[in-house]
């Protein structure tokens, strides 16, 4: 499994030429531990959820949180209130079954289960689908729980319009849309909607190779960024 940042070489040259102090961080580096990260999806496009990008984010968070002494990676909790999560697919993406913990709460208990799991220090990442709008208290609790436990929360939320869209306490928010792929490559476009110290509106392409199960990560040139999508999000 390897994460490739395309244009990496170009970026380095660019950095040298203009002596940039700030290097745009990739998706993997953005998923920091002890924080909440949100992946937004467009509810108008059917109920296509960004599960694989969430899994990639959680996997990165778990890998970042490997204990220095025991060398054992932490666990990944998947809050699956719909009951349709299929673990063998996660096994194909290098998540070992004994490190995976599946929770199936009722919709009313999803936030509670997420907060409880986040507080635990042996959980490296929690992936949860939050279909209901969250209150300010809930988002703050999620953030505090992530800080306390040291794991990352990857929340999958609908990209709603109106006041509810501005209630979040996430370190990064990404708008995820499926992108046309190839025969054996599935693609998603990830657009940074919110993130401290990063360029808002940055777009990335996440590629998954169907045959090898490998994940590639491509930095999209600014000219190809889908501007209407940013406006819709903000």
């Amino acid at each position: 499994m390897r994460w490739v940042t395309a244009n990496h070489k170009k970026l380095l040259i660019h950095e040298k030429a203009f002596e940039l102090t700030h290097q745009p961080a990739g998706f993997e580096e953005s998923i920091t531990s002890g924080a909440v990260h949100e992946l937004l999806f467009q509810p108008t496009q059917g109920d296509i959820l960004p599960l694989f990008p969430a899994l990639a984010a959680a996997r990165a968070a778990v890998r970042n949180s490997v204990d220095a002494v025991s060398q054992s990676p932490r666990r990944l909790a998947w809050v699956d209130s719909t009951g349709t999560f299929y673990p063998p697919a996660a096994m194909g993406c290098a998540i070992s079954p004994e490190r995976l913990c599946i929770l199936r709460p009722k919709p009313a208990d999803v936030v509670w289960a997420t907060i409880e799991s986040l507080r635990c220090r042996s959980i490296g990442a929690v992936v949860a689908l939050m279909m209901q709008p969250l209150t300010r208290v809930q988002v703050r609790r999620l953030q505090l729980a992530a800080e306390m436990g040291g794991g990352a929360a990857v929340l999958i939320r609908p990209n709603l319009a109106g006041a509810a869209a501005h209630i979040y306490a996430a370190a990064t928010r990404w708008l995820v849309t499926p992108a046309p792929g190839e025969r054996t490559i599935q693609r998603w476009q990830l657009q940074l909607v919110h993130g401290h110290g990063r360029q808002i509106g940055q777009s990335f392409i996440l590629e998954k190779n169907r045959a090898s199960g490998q994940t590639h990560f491509v930095h999209l040139p600014a000219s190809l960024v889908d501007h209407p999508a940013i406006q819709a999000a903000s």
């Binding site: 996660a90 004994e98 995976l100 929770l103 208990d109 799991s117 635990c120």
Partner: peptide
Amino acid sequence: RAVEEEIELDRLLQRLRARLGETAVIRP
């Protein structure tokens, strides 16, 4: 620390099972 985390995980699973039900917390 590993032992402590293991105990902490045990407690978490017990708490989750107590509220969500026995079948709602599973390992694949």
